[in-house]
Simulated scan of single mutants.
Amino acid sequence: MAATEPIRDKKQLKELANYFLKKGQLRNYTLVLMGTYTVLRISDLLRLKWSDVYDEERQAFRTHITVTEKKTKKKRTIALNPQLLGALKHCYLHRRGDYIFANNRKEPKAISRVQAWRIIHAAVVELGIMGKIACHSLRKTWGYHAITNGDVSLAVVVDIYNHSSYETTKLYLGIRQDERDEAILKMTLF
């Protein structure tokens, strides 16, 4: 399997999310936002249930989710971004079954990883977004923009990804030579 890339252009990321929103596909719209803002792997996203994000007793959405990652077995607590919460609230009104990303069958279960890939891939192709973009790209996109915008310290990004070093994160996010050149050329120190 080829390595995926982050979606480097914020405009394209917005186009991808809005592609599903315009079609009334709230589940898929929420998949894009949740994949990007939670930085979870697709295997962890698809296991999420409404009870993970919505407290039935309080009749309110949670501000954080706690997930034990399937791959690393590490427990993570993740804040739910306001934009993501908005998507979840809309999607909740049309929920089918226990899973956030339920299929459309009579007995709803979570969609498969293959189905999630098909959903993202078809939209990327239709929109003409270039590059190796797939479900894992959503996870990479957040970190790419956090680092390139300078909004988040490198140490925090490395920690969020559970990587052992900055080098691992750098390779993971696919920082390109033209981006390194731009950073050096635009810096004015005196």
Rank of each mutant, 00 (worst) to 15 (best):
T4V: 11
T4Q: 07
E5A: 06
R8P: 00
D9H: 07
K11W: 04
K11A: 13
Q12M: 12
Q12I: 03
E15W: 12
E15S: 14
L16A: 04
N18Y: 12
F20G: 04
L21I: 12
K22C: 06
K22N: 15
K22P: 00
K23E: 13
G24T: 05
L26Q: 03
N28C: 04
Y29C: 03
M34C: 13
T36A: 03
T38S: 15
T38F: 05
V39H: 01
R41A: 07
S43C: 14
L45M: 15
L46S: 03
R47H: 05
L48T: 05
L48F: 11
D52S: 12
D52Y: 09
E56D: 13
A60G: 00
A60W: 02
R62G: 11
H64Q: 14
I65P: 03
I65N: 07
V67A: 03
V67Y: 06
K71M: 05
K71T: 11
T72G: 04
K74H: 10
K75W: 02
A79P: 07
A79I: 04
L80G: 07
Q83P: 01
L84A: 07
K89D: 03
H90S: 13
C91S: 12
D98E: 15
I100M: 03
K106W: 04
K109T: 15
K109Y: 08
S112W: 10
R113H: 11
Q115N: 13
W117G: 03
I120G: 01
A122F: 07
A123R: 05
V124S: 03
V124L: 06
V125D: 10
G131M: 08
G131C: 06
S137E: 08
R139P: 01
T141H: 00
W142Q: 02
Y144Q: 00
Y144K: 00
A146F: 01
G150K: 12
D151Q: 10
D151C: 01
S153N: 15
A155C: 01
V156A: 13
I160Q: 06
H163K: 08
S165E: 09
E167M: 05
T169F: 04
L171C: 10
L173H: 07
G174K: 08
R176G: 02
Q177Y: 08
A183Y: 08
A183F: 04
I184A: 09
I184V: 15
T188K: 14
F190Y: 08
F190L: 10
F190E: 12
